[in-house]
Simulated scan of single mutants.
Amino acid sequence: MNGFPNIILNFANACETTFEGSSLLHCPNIAADIKYCQSQGKVVILSMGGAAGSYGFSSDSQASQFADTTWNMFFKGTAAQRPFDDAVLDGIDLDIEGGGTSGYTAFISQLRSHFASDPGRQYYIAAAPQCPFPDAYLGSTLNSGWFDMVYVQFYNNYCGLNAYPTWFNFADWDNWAKTQSINKNVKVYIGAPGSPSAASSGYIDGSTLSTIFNAVRSKYTSLGGIMTWDHAYYNAVS
């Protein structure tokens, strides 16, 4: 979702059909894929934001209202147009790289209140901050909102994987997880480019990534795993 609160969706060539008389994508094939993946024990979440798009909130009130819209369109709520029909997603991921800093804590709070209305299902709130700490757009939200996992982008910055061990700053994120995060059990993932063309800088080969991962795992209990950007580029750890 690279546009909100006026919703714009972009799933590349995986979905290009829209509801009749609307510009909103309607993706029954992705809906079927979501259900299949969930039947195999996989969690499917919707990413919001990105490096390009038109998004952001002007106030907490607008953000809270949009949480209602998100619940109705992608989770257990009801809406006249649901991009994935009756498929129910497992959470959202905030990849906020522009558009201001306002409203995200209110958005998370309101969305979690909806999640609480469906206690039989596990829902997730994630974020994908840049590695410089604190993150320019989500820094305050990371300290005031509930997150289950954080996919730190260790690329395109001085603190990327290619700067290990000198400037690679997983220690800062581990300290945040243990001392500042609302959820003290939050997991921090190492975000890695899937190929040299997936990022401007930060790509390392699979063997080097494995070495760094094992070193981080031996020192930091907040480590959750590896995030790869993205599937289309994926070859770093295969």
Rank of each mutant, 00 (worst) to 15 (best):
K187R: 10
F133D: 06
S222W: 09
E20T: 14
D148S: 12
F74Y: 11
C27E: 10
R112L: 11
T69P: 09
Y137N: 00
S200F: 08
S181V: 01
S201K: 03
I204K: 06
F107K: 04
A232P: 06
P28L: 14
I45S: 05
Q122K: 14
T208P: 09
S54H: 03
F66W: 13
H231E: 09
N185D: 10
Y124S: 08
G120L: 08
Q62F: 01
S47V: 03
Q130G: 02
Y124H: 09
Y203F: 15
S218M: 02
N29S: 15
K178I: 09
A198D: 13
M73Q: 13
K42T: 02
K184E: 08
L223W: 02
T179M: 12
S117P: 07
G49Y: 01
G194R: 00
A192Q: 04
N2R: 06
W229N: 03
I92V: 15
M227I: 07
S197W: 08
S195N: 08
A87Q: 09
G202V: 00
V188F: 00
I92C: 01
D172S: 15
S117G: 14
S181K: 04
K184T: 13
V150W: 06
P196A: 12
Q65K: 12
L223C: 03
T166I: 08
G3A: 10
A67F: 06
L111F: 05
W146M: 07
V216W: 06
E16N: 11
N10A: 10
K184L: 14
V152P: 01
T70D: 07
N72T: 07
Y233S: 14
Q122V: 15
G191F: 01
W167D: 10
Y234F: 15
D85L: 14
S144Q: 08
V188T: 05
D93K: 00
S140K: 15
G120P: 03
N6W: 09
A63H: 01
I226W: 00
T105Y: 04
D118F: 11
L161E: 05
I30M: 13
C15R: 04
K184I: 12
I226N: 00
E20W: 09
K184W: 08
V88M: 11
G145I: 03
G191P: 01
R121P: 06
Y233C: 10
S238R: 14
L142Q: 11
G100A: 05
V88N: 15
A79H: 14
L209Q: 02
N72W: 11
I92T: 10
I190F: 05
A128I: 08
I190H: 04
K76P: 07
S140G: 12
P132H: 04
F19R: 13
G139F: 01
T78Y: 14
A199N: 01
L46H: 04
S22E: 12
C131F: 06
P83V: 02
F115R: 08
G145K: 01
T105R: 02
F74K: 11
I8N: 11
K35E: 09
P134T: 00
I190E: 05
V43I: 14
N214Y: 10
S109P: 01
Y151E: 05
P5F: 01
Y104K: 01
S238F: 10
C27P: 13
C131T: 12
G100Y: 03
